[in-house]
Structures are given as structure tokens and as C-alpha cells.
């Protein structure tokens, strides 16, 4: 009883396949398949045909591996770049607020350095020209020479730091030190300026009373 239906189907198996998909269907399938250039196809066929099927698999694996490496590389670069821009943006903002207020704890990364250097160089130059103006007017040259020596010391240590920057692994710390160094110079110059300013003020205050004093002494 079972056999009759089974036998009937078996005998007429071909006739049961009456449907056909639309001819356009292949185009749709094709669009979903990964495209490959004819050259590459030819290469793979030739290689995989030679002796071993596994080689074509290896070839495929290599391509996948290369693609993954490339992707990961790109991703990592992008990620790092994004992080760096975030970092620099942060320090830039910090710098701008800090240089005007308290320059302690500046954290900078290498690309920032020229900007920082330029800023401090202009500051130092400004202070130095101001100082040189006083220099002529005021006494106490000894102290000024001391300042020059201190500045020279700072300069040499700065140069040493800059050399280290190219070899040391932790650039952040060195850049920190360098910024500290630059800031120290401006501070030294500022102090000097203050001193000279005060001296000048003292002198100007004293000048009117100096003559009578002189007179006094001459009188005495």
C-alpha cells in the first residue's frame, strides 16, 4: 500500500518539477555576490588548478588576512588620530588658559612644541628688550650678569632635553620639562624686570631728595 504512492512518484519524478524561476533571478543573485575582476579570477583558477586545491584556499586565506590587516591598520590609525586630535585640542585649550594664568602642569605633545616655543621665544625676547632698556639706566650690573648666566644654564639644559625628546620613549614628560624650562626663563626675566622696575622707582622717588641729601653731605 505504501509502495504505490512512492513508486508512482519515483516513476514520474521528473514531471513533478513543473516550476521555473524567472530568468531575471540570476541577475538579482549576481548583484548580491562579491564582484571580482576577471584578471584575479584567471589567477586563482590557474593556481588552484595546478596540483593542489589547498593552495587556492591558502590564497584565499592570504587575501582575507591581508584585508583584515589592512582594515585593522586603518582602524587603528584612525582611532589614534582621533585620540591625538582630542588630546591636542584639550592641551591647546589648557595652554591658552594656563599661559595667561598659571602655567604649571602643562601637558603637551610633540606637535605642540613649535607653537609653545614660538610663544615663549616672543615672550623672552620682549622681556629681554625691556631689560636692556633698563640696563643702561640702572646700576646693579652684577646681578644682571647673574641672570644671564642662569638663562644660559636653562638654555643648555633645554637643548639637552630637546635632544632627549627624539630618543626617549616618554615624550610627554620631556615636553613637560621643556615647557617648565621655558616658563622658568620668563619667570627669571620677569623677576629681574620687577627688581629693576622697583630700583628705578626707588631711584626716581629718591632723586628729588637726593640733591638735598647730597647737599647735606656736602654741607656736612
Amino acid at each position: 500500500m505504501k509502495d504505490r504512492l512512492e513508486k508512482f512518484v519515483q516513476d514520474n519524478r521528473e514531471e513533478f518539477d513543473v516550476f521555473e524561476p524567472r530568468t531575471e533571478l540570476w541577475q538579482q543573485i549576481c548583484q548580491e555576490l562579491p564582484q571580482k575582476s576577471p584578471e584575479k579570477e584567471a589567477k586563482v583558477i590557474k593556481v588552484s588548478f595546478g596540483d593542489r586545491a589547498s593552495f587556492s584556499a591558502d590564497y584565499f586565506f592570504m587575501r582575507v588576512a591581508a584585508a583584515i590587516v589592512l582594515l585593522v591598520g586603518c582602524g587603528l590609525t584612525l582611532f589614534l588620530m582621533k585620540q591625538q586630535t582630542l588630546d591636542t585640542a584639550g592641551t591647546l585649550a589648557a595652554n591658552q588658559s594656563i599661559t595667561t594664568e598659571a602655567p604649571e602642569g602643562i601637558e603637551a605633545v610633540a606637535p605642540e612644541l613649535p607653537e609653545i616655543e614660538a610663544y615663549y621665544a616672543s615672550q623672552i625676547e620682549e622681556k629681554k628688550t625691556e631689560l636692556s632698556e633698563y640696563d643702561l639706566k640702572v646700576l646693579g650690573l652684577d646681578e644682571h650678569q647673574l641672570v644671564d648666566k642662569e638663562l644660559a644654564d636653562l638654555d643648555s639644559s633645554y637643548a639637552a632635553l630637546k635632544k632627549q625628546l627624539y630618543t626617549a620613549p616618554n615624550t610627554d614628560e620631556i615636553i613637560d620639562a621643556m615647557v617648565q624650562n621655558l616658563w622658568l626663563r620668563t619667570k627669571v626675566l620677569n623677576r629681574q624686570l620687577e627688581i629693576l622696575q622697583r630700583l628705578q622707582q626707588n631711584q626716581q622717588e629718591k632723586e628729588p631728595t637726593q640733591e638735598p641729601q647730597n647737599d647735606d653731605t656736602t654741607n656736612v
Binding site: 549576481c30 579570477e41 586545491a53
Partner: peptide, 11 residues
């Protein structure tokens, strides 16, 4: 085998 290589004609 050719399909594995992405050959559309073989596919």
C-alpha cells in the same frame, strides 16, 4: 573549484 575563485561564469 572555479566558483570558489569567484568566477561568475562558473557560478
Amino acid at each position: 573549484q572555479r566558483c570558489k575563485g569567484g568566477d561568475h561564469r562558473a557560478q
